[in-house]
Amino acid sequence: MSTISRDEVARVAGLARIDLTSDELDRLAGELDVIVQSVARISEVATADVPATSHPLPMFNVFRADVPEPSLPVADVLAGAPASEEGRFMVPQILEED
């Protein structure tokens, strides 16, 4: 049974700003379905005593000391910017409020 619909793929692609063709929507719906079903099978065999895992490494609390390092020079910061003004990145008109 298919759990991922074509519409769902289109919606998520829209949220992620990924432009997909009609063919790609069909293909990805099928492929994502396989992934979801594989994960579902893992859920079947995992018993309640297996905690949900978000990371493969059994590590916690990797912290950095609160010691500042120099900023990137502003010339380097803006080197990759398509356009800049007064030391700031210039971006096209923003149409929606955050």
């Binding site: 700031r88 971006v91 008109q93 923003i94 409020e97």
Partner: peptide, 10 residues
């Protein structure tokens, strides 16, 4: 934001 031509980001 309304009527702005472009924006600058810091």
């Amino acid at each position: 934001i309304q009527g702005a031509e472009y924006s600058l980001v810091d």
